[in-house]
Design a binder for these strands. Sequence first.
RNA 1: GCGCCUGUAGCUCAGUGGAUAGAGCGUCGGCCUCCGGAGCCGAAGGUCGCAGGUUCGAAUCCUGUCGGGCGCGCCA
Length: 566
Amino acid sequence: MTSPGQPALLPPVRSQVRTAIDRAWKRAVQAGDLPSTTESRPSIDIERPAKPEHGDLAVNLAMKLARPYRKAPLEIARILADAIAADIADPAAASPIASVEIAPPGFLNLRLTDVVLETAIRSILGAPVDWGRVPPVRPRTVNVEFVSANPTGPLTIGNARGAFVGDLLCRVLEAGGQTVTREYYFNDSGSQVGNLGASVVAIRTGAPLPEDGYHGSYVEELARELPDDVRAAAEAPGADGADIVGRWAATRVREGIEASLERLGVHFDVWKSEGSLHAEGWVERAIERLRAGGHLLGQDGALWFRSTAFGDDKDRVIIRSDGRPTYFAADIGYVTEKFSRGFDHLIYIWGADHHGTVARVRNAAAAMGYDIDAVQVLLYSWVRFIRDGEEISMSKRAGEFITLDELLEEVGVDAARWFFASRAATTGIDFDIELAKKQSADNPVYYVQYAHARIASILRKAADIGLAPAADVTGLLAGAAEAALARAIVRFPEVVEDAARAEETHGITAYATELATQFHAFYRDARVVDSEEPDRSAARLALVSAARVTLANALGLLGISAPESM
RNA sequence: GCGCCUGUAGCUCAGUGGAUAGAGCGUCGGCCUCCGGAGCCGAAGGUCGCAGGUUCGAAUCCUGUCGGGCGCGCCA
């Protein structure tokens, strides 16, 4: 949403072109050159041709219209091309298209005007912070819940992907104009917390660890740090010592988790405990709501949600026969609690092993009267961590694990962020720790950061001899090197738009790499700092300045630093 | 057995039905009198697991099949 005083974001070039094509299509229909149809026109796909001789952008609309119109694609392409040419000739239309060519089997290959590129560069330099933000398709207030590991031990590399994927998703949604709340859900009162407390007590008293106890140095650390007042309360007659110590330990562990997450640049807005959902009556009210809707079923002494009525393969227990609510009961209470805070979209980031629970949560939301599509689950696949050719197996309870902190210490936050950002969340991936360390110098993230640092260095050097970026690059783009770099820069908002829509970030890392390559090529071919030619130098400084802003914003979008020097 | 995800270059991964399937790393060969060589240029490397089908066109959609991962609790 744009407030009155604020200029609207410049539409991405691709959107401007789409508008122009649409205008041309209507022009052709009005002129009677194309049949008017009651069917809606197919969506206009605009793609970037692999080969430069195919122009800046290509449109396959003529091929798509061939069937409904029962006309040869090339014939339709001819008509559309004529209409686009007419649109270009109309000064009032101010078309972003410079020229159009037809290529078999029916492509329309377009070239952009220099004006469109220059306008974009001007807007980058004028409002660098906004560059890459795109207008929302539909503005939403989104709750993204992720990590949500119970505070029974430090975060491990097993939690890593969820943390990065969730935060990256939030960032990409924010860039797409949505309002995002990052939320962490945890249980600090269950039996596992009691186990943790019992383990701490056992170490403290020198007793053997309980059967299901927790191992690991962090448990010993907790035992050492146990404050006297907590110990006294736990040892009071009739007190549940394991529970009291467990709650204290869970709080300590949770604070440690929060610190780890902050270290990797993930900040949660809301920390929500499962206990609070019960205490505040959300679970009870949600169950009543389901009951009122006739979605519950008593059987074998337990209370079930009729999930099968919504297509699930079985019904799901909400209250066990012994009267204790299941985890799922808290889930449905949580759904109502979240919606009560005004979110119109809920996203859960879960590991792929939770896919069996997706249907029941969404179905319960539907049963309570919410739009099922407003509850979305993003499943990420597992990462196999490899060291010395062997998969690292982990067990938090047995104390065999590598913590997230240790991983980041080894490979670095920027490299780790890049690693996860550059892969689709749904594919299983291998993370070879030795390889990640060994290749750290060759990691593409440094390639992109290097390009940024190099530009920063150029700008410093220019300033030293009194050269500053021009306010504009008008006329500069006649040069081939400049034109190529400008075209790469201007594509950024489209990349963000695609990433926001796909809810994936690997398009951004690929783009950042490509832009860095374009910059390096420009650097090779065009001297930027040149006191002999101050005007051209100033214009080129403006262009590389725009490239720097774009690289910085692309990296920033991924939570990766953009260093001034390396 | 049923369900979901997945199979693309030596390795790690991109590829929303479109033009000769791409990138990084690795390998091989070149480039520093000049704004940062963490760079640039070039080369080799592919039956897109396999077999059918859909259509002007398939890595992409459908069916089958083989391999890998995960799930199928009154666990979380």
